[in-house]
Design a protein around this nucleic acid. Structure first.
Lengths: 332, 332
DNA sequence: GCCCGGATTCGAAGCGCTTCGACATGTCAG
DNA sequence: CTGACATGTCGAAGCGCTTCGAATCCGGGC
């Protein structure tokens, strides 16, 4: 193994000088710097991560706590994971995976062992057992989603309330007077997940504000459940002409069921989805949608965490503004 | 921070004794062991990962190299990632994410800096630039998928050739005489990805063997492309009565297009999918399928890597046998 | 009563890096 | 010409852990 001493010898300088060239924590003359850098390349030197973390008290690794629960939509999640990994690399950090089923103990372990400098926690629930743990941990953290009590924490999320609200506004602007929210699976609401709850709240509030009638229903993702749910919905609320779908997995089935019931999109029923753009574009007809900006969220979360590591003050709560893209499933 | 010296003092023993209790590398009397363990709990001690890795030359971290390419199916990938993370934890290891776009340099970096003890590489292509790098690295690795030249490497994968073949056999057993493979997006074949290639080879070979006519076509996942592809397929090959679909993303559209063309499944056209079970079950009708055992693959890959870390001999090539589950989309 | 061997435990030497204070230079104002 | 002050570099200490050889203790056989 090539060590910093080997590089120092090769370049004819002291080990500490090599360290300063690599970390940039002291100014080094450009001549020396060039010589050291050449030696680093010549020897194929990689600093030993463990030694570095021991001496500097920084691991240059972030923990990413993965959710793994019913009703989560994998493509969005994966997009987010990759975005986080890439963003972290841009800040010279790596990402360590922690699965949610390790619970609070997992957080304590990776933080306590100094394996990570900070934590990114996904899919935070309103009342999440991990939240108090994060507060007492000596490492900074950023939550994606936010709990009921977010005091002292840094949280990022899409503004789901605004997303729900924008969907209703768009439909109301088009003249619809009765709209329905086709939501996430029941389990998601039962565990009191913030994002689903907030979409619903935004949806309902906007309906009130705009004076349009509204109804909401949870939806399981399998085709048969969707068929039953949508059929039932249209029977019980025959005047519904606008659907807001916040359930990526059920989306293809919703469109398909409408077609099989003879309801033309957008002529008989308008549909807006809250889902990634590529999925909305892929369906027939392409759906008007509010994008879930997984990539942007990932970048933002990492940026906030890096700021906290630098002890830069950060806003406690960041809500990304939703972006609505009109496509063929709603028309003027 | 609580150190091993603190624990030693608290328990009234030497630091080395604490270390031996924790690592189990020397026998310690049960009385002492109990005392040390109590102190560990009392103080909430977590060994410093960096110090440990520096002293022992083991990081207890595995690298997982994520693919991120066109045509990959996220749910399967995510399932795999989680399976790997869980399996690694069961062996007392963590998982560090490396995105594929870091290429060979990323592998060199995490291995060279002793950040990881071994590497798991997903989505290996037939001629993959990372393969020679893995060979020269001083850390063991396990590939998921396998390259053209797998000499000196350890690879695991589903036996996709056998999967393709089983599908044809199943259809042939049901009396079908003309079958089609609806494959992955063109890009997947263009970059010469092993698994897609091998499914196709198994499919075609079985068709020859069973004396049934066959055809194959790549498929983009968007609805419109699927419509065009399937419509064209059935026009050009009107005698086709059996479809094997190896494209998770296109699957819902395939079923839907068949319906819209008035071809009843399974009466007019039988369909077998190569996809995760839960997806096959979710569609209408539930599809006969060959499962992609992401979880099993993940576990197996980790087990092999751990074996290599222990210097236990491992088989160079493991092919998991495909499992075909009959559902409503094919009938006797 | 003493020596021996096995079972435990201890002490100290690093692992490779960062960082702090000190030491050379060189520069510039008085 | 000298003192004050940057600027660039060095040496050594020490981060918290593992591991090796050595020390200690104990019981049993002689």
């Amino acid at each position: 193994m090539v060590t910093i001493a080997d590089v120092a010898r090769h370049a004819g300088v002291a080990p500490s000088t090599v360290s300063y060239v690599l970390t940039g924590r002291r100014s080094i003359s450009s001549a020396t710097k060039a010589r050291v850098e050449a030696s680093v390349r010549a020897l194929g030197y990689h600093p030993h991560a463990g030694a570095r973390s021991l001496a500097s008290n920084r691991a240059n690794v972030l923990a990413l706590v993965l959710p793994m629960r019913e009703g989560m939509h994998m493509p969005v999640l994966m997009q987010f994971v990759v975005a986080v990994a890439n963003a972290a690399r841009r800040h010279d950090h790596d990402v360590l995976l922690v699965t949610a089923d390790q619970g609070a103990a997992g957080l304590r372990r990776v933080a306590g062992s100094a394996q990570v400098d900070g934590l990114l926690v996904m899919d935070v629930e309103m009342h999440d057992e991990r939240v108090p743990v994060l507060r007492e941990l000596d490492r900074p953290s950023v939550l994606i989603g936010f709990p009921a009590d977010a005091a002292g924490l840094t949280c990022v999320d899409l503004d789901f309330a605004e997303a729900g609200s924008r969907c209703v506004d768009h439909l109301a602007d088009l003249g619809h007077t009765y709209v329905a929210l086709v939501g996430a699976p029941r389990a998601v609401y039962q565990r009191d997940t913030g994002f689903a709850h907030r979409t619903m709240a935004g949806f309902s509030a906007a309906a009130m504000r705009r004076g349009v009638s509204s109804t909401t229903l949870p939806t399981e993702p399998d085709h048969e459940s969707v068929r039953v749910a949508i059929t039932g919905l249209l029977e019980r609320h025959p005047a519904v002409t606008g659907l807001v779908v916040h359930n990526e997995a059920a989306l293809p089935s919703v469109v398909e069921v409408l077609r099989s019931l003879g309801r033309k999109v957008p002529d008989d029923v308008a549909v807006i989805a809250i889902c990634p753009d590529d999925q909305a574009e892929r369906l027939m007809p392409p759906l008007t949608s509010v994008a879930v900006p997984a990539e942007q969220l990932g970048h933002h979360a990492v940026a906030l965490l890096m700021a906290k590591l630098d002890r830069t003050p950060t806003p406690p709560l960041t809500l990304l503004p939703p972006r609505l893209t009109e496509r063929a499933s709603t028309t003027r």
